[in-house]
């Protein structure tokens, strides 16, 4: 069996984190989970960025008389990752505070419910009929309506 290189594992991990995060954003309905999924995806992107300048044989750039530049890792991606982590934290904090506000207004953290109430709000404000839901079939249902189904 061929040994698996550490680099391959790390790259696969970074891309995997991004994929897991994106899947979470698309598939979850709970707002807090969606924000956590965003955090995971950002972590994956940051790992990918820091990997792009990493060298396995590198050592810490302590000046000992030798050529430090030849033996250290590329510092540029590390500086960039710091910046992007900071940006990410800021955006996540903003997302949480907006979630609080939205929860205060609609008392729900389910994104589908939130969107339904928001559309109803906007349509009510504009004085137009409610937009047709994409998930509901148009026209009458073939089955007899169950008790209490009239939304």
């Amino acid at each position: 069996m061929m040994p698996i290189e550490v680099g391959t594992v790390l790259y696969a991990g970074a891309i995997g984190l991004v994929v897991v995060g994106i899947a979470g954003i698309v598939l979850s309905h709970h707002l807090f989970r969606i924000i956590l999924a965003l955090v995971i995806a950002e972590a994956g992107a940051n790992l990918l960025l820091v990997l792009s300048g990493f060298r396995w044989e590198a050592i810490a750039p302590i000046i000992t008389g030798g050529d430090a530049v030849q033996t250290m890792v590329d510092p540029v991606p590390q500086a960039m990752v710091l910046t992007s982590i900071v940006i990410g934290v800021g955006v996540q904090a903003l997302a949480l505070s907006l979630t609080l506000r939205a929860y205060g207004a609609y008392k729900t953290l389910d994104i589908r419910e939130l969107q339904r109430r928001m559309s109803a709000d906007l349509a009510g404000e504009a004085g137009t009929p409610l937009p047709q839901s994409l998930e509901e079939p148009v026209g009458g249902r073939p089955l007899p309506a169950a008790e209490g189904d009239g939304r």
Binding site: L31, L98, A102, A105, L114, Q115, M118, D121, L122, E125
Partner: peptide
Amino acid sequence: SGAAFAASL
């Protein structure tokens, strides 16, 4: 408004 918060979120 509530709608504005939800939309920006």
